[in-house]
């Protein structure tokens, strides 16, 4: 299936991914080609086949709820682009 410009823009918006004009054009043809190759999967009969999300058959892994020290605040904030008063500083969500 061929992806149109609107679809590329829609996917980019879902991913919150800014794209340049050149990237938008390039992805239109490249993603179309790649997705076309995925069509081969439609020939596989998967009636009654359960999906595998994960290869290890394990139930929920539960640990004891024990109090343990976490990393110091200053180390956690050390990589933050913007911080203030011991918090991550973010942009206004509501304008």
């Amino acid at each position: 299936m061929k992806l149109g410009r609107e679809e590329i823009e829609h996917i980019a918006r879902l991913a919150r991914l800014g794209l340049s004009e050149a990237e938008t054009e390039r992805f239109q043809s490249q993603l179309s080609d790649i997705m076309e190759n995925f069509d081969i999967l439609q020939e596989v009969d998967t009636t009654d086949i359960l999906p595998t999300a994960h290869v290890i058959e394990m139930e929920n892994v539960i640990r004891d709820d024990k109090v343990a020290p976490s990393l110091p605040q200053d180390e956690i904030l050390a990589n933050a682009p913007r911080q203030e008063g011991g918090y991550f500083r973010v942009r206004a969500v509501l304008e």
Binding site: G18, L19, M35
Partner: peptide, 22 residues
């Protein structure tokens, strides 16, 4: 957010994010 990801990620990472999101 969109600009951070536009300039922070390279072409193949963007391609895969696009593929996966789709």
């Amino acid at each position: 957010l969109e600009k951070t990801r536009q300039y922070g990620f390279g072409i193949e990472v963007k391609r895969r994010i696009m593929l996966g999101t789709h």
